[in-house]
Every structure is written in C-alpha cells, then in structure tokens.
Nucleic acid binder design. Structure first.
Lengths: 203, 203
DNA sequence: AGTATTGGATACCAACACTATCCAATACAA
DNA sequence: TTGTATTGGATAGTGTTGGTATCCAATACT
C-alpha cells in the first residue's frame, strides 16, 4: 500500500507518518521508484504499536524508539533486554544510587530479590520517598497488602508469557506499558464503586 | 521564613518558587514590607505536595492547580469533588461518549457499578482499546484476575481513608496519584523477581 | 554606609510532537 | 498524451510546557 493508505488505515495523519519515518520509528517502505514506496501490514502493526505506546501509555517518542529497537533486536541476553526495555518506560530515573533503603526494606520484608541495578528499584524508592515527602507515607501493613495483591497479578502475567506468539520482549514491554493504565483505571473505579456503595451515590 | 529559605528548605530553585507564585500554585507570602514577605510551614507543605504531584506522579502544573484548588475548596458534595479531583489525574480523556462497551462488559461481569460519567470509565475503555489495537487484548480470565487483586487493594484503601487526618480530598487525590507509581514499580519488580527465579539470573 | 536580598516584571530558553509548505519526480487516469 | 494527484524528501514553522535568567528599585541587615 502507499503511504497515504497507510495513514488512512491507522488513523495517523500523513504528516505524522512522515515525521515518524524521519525520526526512525518506522522503517522506510520499499522503493518502487524514485518517488514511490510500498508499505506492508508490518508497517500498519508498527504504527499501531507506536500509537499504543505514545497515546495510551503516554511514552515520549524517544523512549518508544528505544523500545522498538529492543523489540527488533533484543541482543543476546533476554533477561537483560527485558530489563532494559522495561527501564525505558516511565517514570524515568537516570540516577543510579548504590542503595535504595526504602525499596530494600520492603523487598526484604516480602521476600523478593533486592537489586539496585533494576530500574524499577529506583522507581520504587522514589515513589516511596514521594509519598513520605507529601506526608502520605505508606504503613507496613499497607505495603504488605499491596505486595500480596500485586504478586497475584504478576504471577498470572508470567504464566501467560510463555504461551504468547509475540516475541518475549514485545510481550513484556507491551504488557507492562499497556496493562498498567488498565490496572490504574480499575483501581480508581473500584474506589468509586466502594465509595458509592458505602457513602451513597452523588445525591 | 523568607523566600530564599523556603526554596532551600524544599529544594526547589528560587526561580521556580517565583514561577509557582506567578502561576498561582502557591499562595503569596505575607508582606512585611514593600520588598519582603514571610512564608510559613504551610508553604513548605504546599511545595512538597506540588513536588510530589509533578515529579513523582508526573502531573502537568495545570492539573496540579486544579487539584490544589479542590483540596482548598472541595465545595459542597464530597463524592463529586472526589470524582472531579481524580478525573484531573492522567490519563486525560476529554471526550464523553455515551457508551463504553468494553468497560461496561468488564464492570458488569465483576459486579461493579458501570457509570459512563466517571472519568475512570473512559480511561478504562481507552486503555482496553489500546491493548486490542496493539494486538495485546486481555482475556476475560486475565481481567478477572486483575479485578480481584485490585479490588483487594481498593478495599484496603477505603478502610484507611476514614481514619486519616488529612482532608478526604487530599487523602484521595494524593493516595491515588502517589500510590499508583508504587503499585506499578512493585508489579515490575515482581515480574523481575519471578522471571529471575524462573529463568535464572542474568548470567 | 554599604552590601545583600527581596518582590515583581519581563524576557528568554530548550524540549517535544507535530504540522505545513515546497519541490521536482513520477504514477496513473482520461 | 496530457493533465492531475501523489510521492519521497527536505526544511521551516507552530504551540505548549516548564521552567531560567535578568533587571529593577526598594528595602533589610551588618
């Protein structure tokens, strides 16, 4: 298909498709002449993934580019590629402290590996720090409850990863980035539901 | 304290404090003369909240302003003020469709109120839509597992709300915005933990 | 008396994600 | 064949966001 058809199929404006090509997020089409190129279903899929990552997950294009790069070429070590891919998801933490005491305490309490090299460890530390700074520190009890429920979700996620037809990187990144908004929306709705049933509906 | 002390105490650059004053996120200090004003611990707290909402939760200042406004003056109806406050958290959905079929199906299946007027309903719909568009649609089974675990978290949250010393709005907004990054980081770390224990550590 | 700091105003800045315009070459339709 | 539409490619411009930086005269503090 031609570039205009690609734009129409995906709902992405033509000028934006060109922009993504310029930025290297989208592979160029196959040139069929000096001023014509053909695009495939792969391009459609790629654009859908970009759309999902930018608009649904809210990632900046720079990060999307990194992730797409890892999907295309995970390199040798799957485990570290997974880590890198997930590390390029927000929130971004460029620092790498030697120690993250809040995260460490929590992870040790719940019996999980504490590794300051994981990007998510820094994310957790800073998230916990932010709750404290705002005067909303989380009690041990709360963290325990959260950890247990979240573990339930994560275990399910990993079970399902093995049977997926997508590449593990793609599955992991998209599953992390795209399911997170679902989780948050569900929590908010559960709050509303419980509050409505308890406090009575708005009126 | 003077403005420079305020900046130092909170770690926010002086120019930025002035900027927040300009933008109306921070109340002006009490003038003690034509070129002097005093700031209080309330200003410190306010700045900490702004910092938490912008840097940890990643909110744009505009939204922070709305939330601070609701904290300061929730108006008459607590339930709708809570809804409004949470609605001003990302992801932002300006549309208000009459129907959100994916969200509706899910909520009915798990026995929760379906109300297209809740902002989170639109968020859920779009999040689910994005998973489908990227070829990562969630199965009923997965949604069921997620819903159950999340419900556990939300029920705990609501229990604890009643005994809080903060205003309900402040508790709800900060609890939503600040605990979300914690939840996401914990899920990512749980993934890493399970993967490491199953696939073997990086090496 | 002299230095430092203040509130307040204004100007400037870079990053981000597009959007628009222009071009000559070419595809395609009549 | 003639004319219109579309293409790849380049370049320039846009609006928003979240600040920084600079300047000022007035005023604190020492």
């Amino acid at each position: 298909m031609r570039i205009s058809a690609l734009a129409e199929r995906t709902g992405v404006p033509l000028a934006t498709v060109k922009y993504y090509l310029r930025e290297g997020l989208l592979q160029p089409g196959i040139l069929t002449g000096a001023t014509q190129a053909r695009y495939t279903e792969d391009h459609v899929h790629r654009l859908q993934v970009i759309k999902a990552l930018t608009s649904a997950a809210g990632l900046p294009l720079q990060k999307v580019k990194v992730i797409l790069g890892l999907i295309d070429d995970p390199g040798g070590d799957l485990f570290s590629a997974l880590g890198q891919a997930v590390a390029s998801l927000p929130p971004y933490r460029s620092d790498s402290e030697p120690e993250y005491p809040r995260a460490r305490a929590l992870l040790e309490r719940i019996g999980q590996i504490y590794d300051p090299g994981y990007a998510a460890t820094a994310q957790l530390e800073h998230a916990l720090e932010a709750t404290e700074e705002a005067g909303m520190g989380m009690t041990d009890e709360r963290l325990q409850v959260y950890a247990q429920q979240i573990r339930g979700i994560a275990e399910f996620d990993l079970q399902r990863m093995e049977g997926s037809e997508l590449s593990p990187i793609e599955y992991a990144v998209l599953g992390t980035a795209l399911y997170e908004p679902v989780i948050l929306a569900m929590r908010r709705l559960a709050h509303q539901d419980i509050a409505a049933k308890r406090l009575g509906p708005p009126g």
